[in-house]
Amino acid sequence: MIVAPALQGTRHHGMRIKLRVWRQAGPDAQGRLEDHQLDDISPDMSFLEMLDVLNERLIKAGDEPIDFDSDCREGICGTCGLMIDGRAHGPLPGTTTCQLHMRTYADGDTIVIEPWRADAFPVLRDLSVDRTAFDRIIAAGGFISVNTGAAPDANAVLVPKADADLAMDAAACIACGACVAQCKNASAALFTGAKVSHLSLLPQGSPERARRALRMVQQMDAEGFGSCSNEGECEAVCPKQISIANIARMNREFTRASLGGAS
């Protein structure tokens, strides 16, 4: 359980927050930090609701609101993702930006908000970035080849519970890109490793495991993501707490495939 420090004290209303927000008109435009002061923030607001409040104010003033992506606002779609005071998704472990609440902050705090920064994730506008590189990594091999209609009975293949649980741990990745954003090399090893692990841990995914590992790793490199140098920052900021053991598993799969001559 994560209990934010502010909760343990008395509830305060109308927090004053200073924001320094990255503004960038388009992919090729020069960006800059813009300052905003908010004086009426409720500790029960989510971080994105706080930005909604700011945007409402900007629109009313005839200014353009801050562009940022979000959708489910319950931590599962992976759409949101902000670099908050230099930490992907902000200060709480296992928490997406949309799940972060203002009670985590103290009255008078200054918060710096930036987009994910990586060559493979170009900025589109303000805080939103292009993460289609992730889709291309999945297209390279992040699947099990089974056409609709070609499946055997669901219970025809037994999967040991421990393997199924490990596969599920890896499959919980939401492809938000925090791992890339936090990594000094902008490596996508945790994202790619999670999918390689999920599928290769299961008997259904085993026939293609060599080909999958090779192709996904090659695509990851081709997209311009950096190499993994085992810093572990990805795991530390991952909102789904995906383990870097998945990177080790990917490396093992890749090495095995490289030596074994995968088709």
Partner: peptide, 22 residues
Amino acid sequence: VNILDQCVAQGVPFAREYGGLI
């Protein structure tokens, strides 16, 4: 019933019992 079969074949990690069944 076909949907469940399809999803399992795709590698959807459904909850399992200790015997390996879904």
